[in-house]
């Protein structure tokens, strides 16, 4: 597996400052605007964007968090259950323009799930999308309004966003080529007749 850095901490910071200006410019101000970070790395990114906007507009935008686990369409395909971190939207959606914030835009399925999850909470005036990295390979008709960096990738590659709030060390974005043995294999074989005791045992 080879890893290559495509964004340094400074580049991440500059991209976020630029996006923070773009969000306000596109909306024509900060009135009726709120940010929604997608769990997990979209959450610290949303907070940083709110910080940046506060620095140049002197207004603190409301920030919510969105957990899309229960809206994913690939839950059954993944062998491991994700840890749920929770949704918190401390505002009425009806009168707001919401900007969904995520780290990487890839197939578009996460964003589709995020929009579904949002709509369960109300009917926002408009929904926009800001991502730190757009790596292409969309499977749905979805596009980001604000992009930190466009990165052409192949499907065999993995983009890892490291943020100091979540990961160890400093901010960076790396691109890795996943070798076959490193890929998580999905076990789609039906396990009929597997011993009940084995299947029932709790991992510790």
């Amino acid at each position: 597996m080879t890893a290559r850095r495509i964004m340094t901490a400074d580049e991440v910071r500059r991209a976020l400052v630029r996006i923070s200006h773009e969000i306000v410019e596109k909306h024509g101000g900060t009135d009726g605007l709120a940010l929604v970070g997608v769990q997990r790395r979209g959450v610290p990114l949303a907070t940083r964007l709110a910080d940046a906007i506060e620095a140049h507009e002197a207004v603190r935008l409301p920030v919510g968090t969105l957990d899309i686990t229960f809206h994913r369409d690939d839950l059954a395909l993944s062998q491991r259950q994700p840890v749920v971190r929770g949704t918190e939207l401390p505002f009425e959606l009806a009168s707001l323009t919401l900007v969904i914030i995520d780290d990487v835009l890839y197939t578009g399925r996460t964003v589709r799930a995020a929009m579904d999850a949002l709509m369960d909470h109300g009917r926002p005036k408009a929904v926009r999308l800001a991502v730190l990295v757009d790596r292409g390979h969309r499977e749905l008709p979805i596009r980001a309004d604000h992009v930190g960096k466009n990165v052409p990738t192949s499907r065999e590659e993995v983009i890892r966003v490291h943020l100091k709030e979540v990961d160890e060390g400093e901010d960076e974005v790396v691109i890795e080529r996943q070798s076959d043995d490193g890929a998580e294999k999905s076990d789609t074989e039906p396990r009929r007749g597997a011993g009940a005791n084995e299947a029932a045992s709790w991992g510790t």
Binding site: R40, R80, V84, G86, R191, A200, W202
Partner: peptide, 30 residues
Amino acid sequence: DSLPGWPRHLLDVAGMSQVAVEEVMRRADE
């Protein structure tokens, strides 16, 4: 980030790890 070893069946709570219990509690809150 993901739960290790969630079993296929839910037959008993004996031996259920605290990590698994915490996830059930967190999801129940949601």
